[in-house]
Design a protein around this nucleic acid. Sequence first.
DNA 1: GTCATAGTCATCGTATACGATTTCGTACTC
DNA 2: GAGTACGAAATCGTATACGATGACTATGAC
Lengths: 223, 223
Amino acid sequence: MAETATAVAGTGSKSEQAYAAVKARIVDGTYSPGYRLVLAKIAEDLGVSVVPVREAIRRLEAEGLVTFERNVGATVAGIDPTEYLYTMQTLSIVEGAATSLSAPLMGAADIARARAVNEEMRDCLQHFDPVRFTRLNQDFHSVLFEHCPNPHILDLVHRGWNRLASLRSSTFRFVPGRAHDSVDEHETLLKLIETGADADTIEKAARLHRSATLDAYLAQTKQ
Amino acid sequence: MAETATAVAGTGSKSEQAYAAVKARIVDGTYSPGYRLVLAKIAEDLGVSVVPVREAIRRLEAEGLVTFERNVGATVAGIDPTEYLYTMQTLSIVEGAATSLSAPLMGAADIARARAVNEEMRDCLQHFDPVRFTRLNQDFHSVLFEHCPNPHILDLVHRGWNRLASLRSSTFRFVPGRAHDSVDEHETLLKLIETGADADTIEKAARLHRSATLDAYLAQTKQ
DNA sequence: GTCATAGTCATCGTATACGATTTCGTACTC
DNA sequence: GAGTACGAAATCGTATACGATGACTATGAC
């Protein structure tokens, strides 16, 4: 019963465990947006007292994954369309920067790996599986920005992705047509990196890639 | 004795009070970088128990204002030169974005206000006071980015400034020569906004303005 | 029938208490 | 005299307990 909790327990600090466990459940969708996070319940599930859970929730709040209201409680942060827009815009900026900073540090092996992932995505277009596609999409971009030498920026990128992760299948479920373009843009981006394009060009391309996804979503919902 | 704490007490939640109080003391320099934040001591100063203080520290940790080590304690986050570099670079990116997004929403009154602040800075160049100059500098940039319609980006900008605030007098104390150029760049930036330059141009200008400050600092320390 | 009010329940907020861990000082040995 | 081991003090980590707050429900008056 408490197995799932035990599985995460490595760190030692219960506060840390609680943080990891709750975050995992939010990201993997067990706790979907709007879900009411009752401290005592979570504490019981994890086999700890409420104090470490409170701290964990507080940290998640600071990251924007949960919202908190005094004397009322915490809920998993929603996917309010406006919020989605803000998050995507922010991510386009920080991810663009991370990718351009990361690019010159990428080796041939990294590019090959990214390309392999992208080809997998292309295959995936046939019998389209939004969830798998989204996971591959994240893998692809991870390869691109993970070498970013500035840990602050990298952290911001991760936070942005986590925010979006609560959407489970992301935009591609709503705008399947976008997936095809996305794969092509990935290849373009890889070519730019490969040929050592200047930082500004890469940054713009990465930023536009994400903006295009956002635009596709907006066009879809507006009609 | 507990007057300072009481003065902040408006919010109601002790956790919130503790957060505000500690943050204020870090930003205003009472707790300087490296200062050891002992939970029990802070709790006593504020007239609360340690639990709310822990939560406050946790939030400050998530914001990067304090560092925390398990079973050891919290210290005010340092100004390690590397960290300074990362923070400035990150800020150049998010502040550039915030400024460019904010620009089209600024009215003539806002621009006039910014220009007034900048003229004050120019006056300040005579009998140079780094602390005052830095405060004016923040005021100036606040006017520029405060209209940013994306709250996430705005939040990131604020966090960046808070990080730097622990340096009290900022770069200008170390590189006084930079102050003069800075004022000129401010005027250039205002002209761009006034004439409705496109977003990309404004973003680049704002970003470069900050990068130049960073470069001046690096040149100074390297020699 | 609807609105206001009182009372109860669920949940949060904080204090206190105690066990766990680290750090530092001291004494002992080689 | 230097290094190591032991022990005490300081501090953190977590559990438990209780008071406070907000949401919900039922009852009564108009």
